[in-house]
Design a protein around this nucleic acid. Structure first.
Lengths: 218, 218
DNA sequence: CCTCCCAGCCTTACGTTGTAAGGTAACCAT
DNA sequence: ATGGTTACCTTACAACGTAAGGCTGGGAGG
């Protein structure tokens, strides 16, 4: 009979990420996580002081993954560099769809995140940004360095829209309706639906990068 | 003895907003809310089917407030118009610090929100945006039309930083440390601390508006 | 006027959550 | 051997959302 490998903080955090990937963030509960690890809930508290700490740890783990994904490329133009980096971060987030929600709900920021942002400041400063503009840039980027942007409209659940509902919507939202209609006809790749999040992300990112470059040059 | 005014959906929602304003979003619980209304928890369910619906309703109420705050000014330059509008929305959000967190955690979007965004599309289209660019703009704005932006670093709780911690941080985060140090010396209004969120918000907003204006002109 | 219904509120109870308190068993240094 | 520390478990509690059903007063129909 195999003696069970002992718990560690790392093992717990990895299991937590795996659980969230599998069942979603809402199902990440102390008991559920413990069960996955073949252990009782209270045992987790010998490795983590509280659930808050677990979540912090999960964010930390996530950021390790991001850091690994973006690691060490030669620094060309700062814009291309950061663009590349943010897009790579985005690929990580696509693997963990629950992560943006978790990160933005967090009130405290694990040190790993600070370290990650420190690297971004470094890039900006090396590119000739003064600290003031670098600071502004950081705020402007928002969560894009982590690979996601604020999405107000979650496209998913257009479940029960009857024709009548559609008509009512067209009445109440003439401009959005027209916009969607127009966009649907012009999609290059019809499989993507009318919101190609990747393209939107890149558009917004470029908008910011171009704007900042202009500011940098004076 | 005063006969108690009967519950309505509106009264419940207003009480919910008031409770969140007073005690924070976490304290907005069915029982607590009912207590505020002088009623038992289950009574709320005759006006709202579930807590999810309560939260949707709260967002809806919030958006009514935003719409009212933003209402009807003459349309000058589209940029000034939207800028003004988003800043007014921001003032509403400052009165409800918990609101951004709630809104971005929401998975479904109340119709009121769609209506609000419809107006923004209208403004853009009137200003000469084609639907494609208007769509892009909407994504780029993210949550700014609602008066907030994604803030990764919540400045608040720098509670226990001893001198030793500060030194360690300076070691681990040289660039951020330098940036903060540089910014602290240059603040015009020292009462604001080193992150003047209002200024950052406006900076980012202008960055986006300027970028979009450039795209619009071709 | 009486009756019946039902909207609006309350009572009770269940399952799930995070976690406090304390028990137990294996291991390690003295 | 012994005493203590470490890692896990058991039990229990308060707070949450909400299902199921009970009471009650006022309005509609005969």
């Amino acid at each position: 009979m195999a003696t069970r490998t002992p718990l560690t903080r790392e093992r717990v955090l990895e299991a937590a990420v795996a659980l969230a990937d599998r069942d979603g963030l809402a199902k990440l509960t102390m008991r559920g996580l413990a069960a996955d690890l073949g252990v009782e809930a209270m045992s987790l508290y010998h490795h983590l002081p509280a659930k808050q700490a677990l979540l912090d740890g999960v964010v930390e783990t996530l950021l390790t993954e991001v850091s690994a994904a973006v690691a060490a490329e030669d620094e060309k133009d700062w814009r291309a560099h950061l663009r590349n980096q943010f897009l790579k971060a985005r690929r990580v987030m696509l693997r963990h769809p629950w992560a943006p929600g978790l990160i933005s709900s967090r009130t405290s920021v694990p040190p790993t995140v600070f370290a990650y942002y420190d690297g971004i400041v470094a890039t900006l400063v090396r590119a000739g940004f003064d600290y003031h503009l670098a600071h502004r840039a950081l705020h402007a980027f928002g969560s894009m360095p982590l690979g996601f942007a604020q999405e107000i409209f979650t496209v998913g659940e257009t479940g029960g829209d009857s024709e009548a509902d559609m008509a009512a919507m067209a009445q109440a939202l003439p401009n959005i309706t027209a916009m969607v209609a127009s966009e649907i006809h012009n999609v290059t790749d019809p499989t993507l639906g009318w919101c190609d999040t990747q393209t939107e992300f890149e558009f917004t990112l470029d908008l910011l990068l171009d704007g900042l470059e202009r500011k940098r040059k004076g």
